[in-house]
Design a protein around this nucleic acid. Structure first.
Lengths: 145, 145
DNA sequence: CTTAGTGCAAATGTTTTGCACAATG
DNA sequence: CATTGTGCAAAACATTTGCACTAAG
């Protein structure tokens, strides 16, 4: 199962505080679970929580270091965060509507390892994002324009 | 051959101006050809050129749209640019010393196409960056620390 | 109580924009 | 000469930091 608890926070040397719990909860149950710091902040505001934007940034960074969330930098210079899952995955992003699909391809992973090894690198991680137009009709139409 | 000319600028609807030529020339012959806007700006300053930082940003963005340079956003939220080559390539970045290696793997490319198609996407581009530690002795040592 | 966490405001670093002036075709 | 490009300064963003105050263990 992939739900983080107070224990996970403590294990990371983080006190269990209201802002951290709220942010964690928000990320766990967000349907579109790719959120920018600003997104998280606005969502908290809407829920009537009194958390500062600076705290959101601090907490997200701490969560990242603790392996609780992953940070992604897509094409725009803006970081988005998502709850870390057990299974690693990469992303497919629609240039038109921004839809994000997660995928995992074992063959690609293996080839990446091979490439790194060929160049004498010890692979530590990678970032693979595919950009394109999804099959949504509006997005398809925008191509022919 | 992969050298851009005044013709390429005109074809892109850009007038041939001194700043554009200087930036183009700089990117073409830079040995470490991955430069941030700031890098480009500083290099121009050192050559005694009088170009504003804003112009560097504008020109690089125009060049990107014209397909003359490619923009990459590596882990840090900072854009780096490089002259577009005929052959597409991805990057292998050393987390320790920042060394950047370019590679191209046809198998990975093909698999990306397949993944996109499987999800109903028309692939427009992708970003693949492998992070790790290179075989430089200092970088290797830093692991065992 | 002692330490870590927070909100706020101010600072930072990168990139963009407005505008009067300069250069290109 | 009409248009596009430029430098400069100011604005706009995303993110970080300093600090006095608050809450957690």
């Amino acid at each position: 199962m992939s739900s983080f608890t107070n224990q996970d926070l403590r294990r990371a040397g983080l006190k269990v505080t209201l802002p951290r719990l709220k942010i964690l909860e928000l990320l766990e149950k967000a349907e579109s679970h790719h959120m920018s710091a600003e997104d998280v902040y606005k969502a908290l505001m809407e829920h009537g929580e009194d958390v500062g934007l600076a705290t959101v940034y601090r907490v997200l960074t701490q969560f990242e270091q603790a392996g609780i969330v992953e940070r992604h930098n897509f094409e725009n210079n803006l970081s988005v965060f998502e709850i870390a899952k057990d299974e690693h995955h990469d992303h497919l992003v629609c240039d038109q509507c921004g839809k994000i699909i997660e995928f995992h391809n074992e063959e690609i992973e293996a080839l990446q390892e091979k490439v790194a090894k060929d160049f004498g690198f010890t692979l530590a991680g990678h970032s693979l994002v595919l950009y394109g137009i999804c099959d949504n009709k509006d997005c398809q139409n925008s191509i022919k324009r």
